[in-house]
Amino acid sequence: MKIAVCMKQVPAVSEGNMDPKTGVLLRAGMEAIVNVYDLAALEAALRMKESIDASIHVFTMGPSKAESVLREAFAMGADEGWLICDKAFAGADVLATSYTLMQAIRAVGDFDLILCGKQTTDGDTAQVSGGLARWMDIPHANWVTEVINISHKEINVRYNMENSTVTASMSLPCLVSVEKDFFIPRMPSLKLKISGKKKTVHVLTIEDLEDQDKKHYGLSGSATKVRKIFPPPRTKHQEPVTFDGDKAAEYILSQLSDVNLF
């Protein structure tokens, strides 16, 4: 069985600057880490590998420094790593990102299962996994909390809906995105970390893909167009105040009136 895991490098902090013209996050000089939701996807793949013969291929899209994502995946037990790196891919929204991932995965070969994290901490859209499944034309399940059983033909999972929990069976190939609280990532192995430094990271550029039309990638291939961006208002430091009885009620009423809430 061949399992593909999609992972991403994200900023380690919640603050950053954006290009006012394109709306793209300016990542230069920012500390980067592996998206925690994607670590859960890798953990899910590793647990499956413990119960069924499988090879785990990790795909990450980003600049050359995103290679560190693959090195960390090697240290946890991944078998192969693929860095999707080309200037043509820069500035992609969820549509262009999912399309690029589809092209990259198909360029490598056929996979029985694709695993994704629920979302990323820098975008929070939770749309890439669904978009990827649509491009691949395969069934998918989101918000998976448990992999009940997996064979070479099908996978049984349990996932959350808004007010219920669903148990589903899907034929392979398919895509699954997982909830991070139910797949706590294991600690990297020192032995695997050492051996992982010697492993080859495969690089995929637009020339390796079947579709080499640059209009389908990056900013050009993005359906989302940013009209305006601005930083959220910062909360000013407020000194605590203390009142008793009617004075407290009058103060609360005055505060609500000031912001037109009463």
Rank of each mutant, 00 (worst) to 15 (best):
V10W: 13
V13I: 10
V13Y: 06
V13Q: 13
V13F: 06
N17K: 14
N17M: 14
D19P: 09
T22M: 10
G23W: 11
G23C: 07
V24Y: 04
V24R: 12
L25E: 04
L26Q: 15
R27A: 15
R27L: 15
M30G: 02
A32Q: 15
I33H: 03
N35V: 09
V36P: 02
Y37N: 14
Y37L: 03
D38L: 08
D38C: 09
L39M: 13
L39D: 13
L39A: 04
L39V: 00
A40E: 04
A40C: 03
A41W: 08
A41D: 08
L42V: 06
E43A: 09
E43S: 02
A44E: 05
I52W: 02
I52L: 15
D53N: 13
A54L: 04
S55W: 00
I56S: 02
I56C: 05
H57I: 03
H57S: 15
V58R: 09
P63D: 12
P63A: 13
K65A: 11
K65E: 15
A66P: 12
S68R: 14
S68M: 13
R71D: 05
E72T: 10
A75M: 07
G77C: 05
G77T: 06
A78V: 10
D79Y: 08
D79F: 07
D79M: 08
D79E: 07
G81Y: 07
W82K: 01
C85T: 15
D86W: 06
K87I: 03
F89T: 09
A90I: 13
A92L: 06
D93Y: 12
D93C: 09
L95N: 06
L95F: 14
L95G: 00
T97Y: 07
T97M: 05
S98H: 05
S98M: 07
S98Q: 07
S98R: 05
T100E: 04
M102I: 00
M102G: 12
M102Q: 10
M102H: 13
Q103N: 14
Q103W: 04
A104M: 10
A104F: 08
I105L: 12
V108Y: 01
G109V: 05
G109F: 03
F111Q: 09
D112S: 13
K118D: 00
Q119A: 07
Q119S: 11
Q119H: 03
T120I: 09
T120N: 11
